[in-house]
Amino acid sequence: MIEVVDLTKSFPISRQQRRELAAQSAAPSKTAGRPGASATNLQAVAGATFRCRPGRVFALLGPNGAGKTTVLRMIATLLRPDGGRISIAGVDALADPVAARRRLGFLTGSTKLYERLTAEENVRYAADLHGVAAPDYKRRRDALFGALGIEAYAGRRAGQLSTGMKQKIAIARTVIHDPEVVVFDEATSGLDVIAARAIIQLIKDCRAQGKTVLFSTHIMSEVTMLADDLAVFHRGRVLAGGGLEEVLARAVDEHGQRRTLEDEFVRLIDAAEAELGEARP
């Protein structure tokens, strides 16, 4: 289970960013960006609340700059929020981030490996950090390397592997400790079809094992293929959410015709932008 309640996060704005924002705004003292932005800070996340349940896949959708990655990094305890609460498998991630990390696997599209270590050594190092016992490690390692088709590359240095192969090693490293919760941040971005399918299959396997899965993506076909629940994120806020079928059932145009998920997503973002534009001075 992942529970996010009233999460907020702001970042300082550089002098250059202030100049750029001032140029976009009719009033130089105000930013033209997110609600809650000031002359010196930008509010990346503004009161986000959602829940991801075990045995289900939750998709976080939003345009570039919506704040999705910031939310996921806070869930992964890589960033500390300014306010709000995060619970990971029953653990307060703010009060005890170490315990939260033990229950969590986090994979991004920019995940890096130790290039001087072999594929096997990268995965074993992660297992040792999580205190995985030797018999459990061997069993999980054999299953993962077999499922991902990376057994033949186990002894090769990570720096010698292709981008897709590196991502497969990163997958194995992410779940070698058998986490209860798995988070994917644009994990298939820029990958070839074979590597992307490996991640999609892993998500399906995690759901079948009763794990909680949260992922962000720009690829609508992945959402319709994988998601049980979703939230549409925009300028640091949750615009809409619920079960995938529930969201699609509400996506009806003025003629009573069903919209696609992509059409409904665009409609929600356009409506939010229009409302924000009307609210600006």
Rank of each mutant, 00 (worst) to 15 (best):
E3V: 11
V5T: 10
D6Y: 11
K9I: 03
F11V: 01
P12Q: 13
S14N: 12
S14W: 07
L21I: 00
A22L: 02
A22C: 02
A27G: 12
K30L: 15
K30W: 03
A32L: 12
G36T: 08
S38P: 01
T40E: 06
N41M: 14
L42G: 14
Q43R: 09
A44K: 10
A48H: 00
C52S: 03
V57E: 04
A59L: 08
A59K: 08
N64V: 10
G65T: 08
A66S: 14
A66C: 06
T69Y: 01
I75L: 00
P81Y: 03
D82S: 11
D82N: 10
G84P: 04
G84W: 08
S87I: 10
A89R: 01
G90M: 09
A93D: 04
A93Y: 09
L94M: 04
A95D: 00
D96H: 13
P97G: 00
A99K: 11
R101V: 04
R101M: 04
F106W: 06
T108H: 05
T108N: 10
G109R: 04
Y114H: 05
T118W: 00
E120I: 01
E120P: 08
E121Y: 00
E121Q: 09
R124E: 00
A126Q: 10
D128T: 02
V132D: 08
K138A: 00
R140P: 03
R141N: 10
D142C: 06
A147W: 02
L148I: 07
G155H: 12
G155P: 07
R157V: 11
G159W: 13
S162P: 10
T163R: 11
G164C: 13
M165K: 03
K166S: 14
I171V: 15
I171N: 12
H177F: 13
H177C: 06
P179W: 12
E180F: 12
E180T: 02
E180P: 05
V181W: 15
V182R: 02
E186C: 12
D192H: 11
I194A: 15
R197I: 06
A198M: 00
I199A: 06
I199D: 01
I200F: 07
Q201P: 07
L202N: 01
I203V: 12
I203Y: 08
R207Q: 04
Q209L: 14
Q209K: 08
K211P: 00
K211W: 04
K211I: 06
V213H: 03
F215L: 09
S216P: 05
S216Y: 07
T217P: 15
T217K: 01
S221W: 03
T224V: 14
L226R: 06
F233R: 02
H234G: 03
G236W: 05
R237F: 13
R237V: 06
L239S: 04
G243C: 14
G243E: 14
L244N: 02
V247D: 09
L248P: 13
R250G: 09
R250Q: 15
H255C: 09
G256K: 00
R259A: 08
L261T: 12
D263I: 02
R267H: 13
A272Y: 12
L276E: 04
L276N: 11
E278A: 15
A279L: 08
R280H: 12
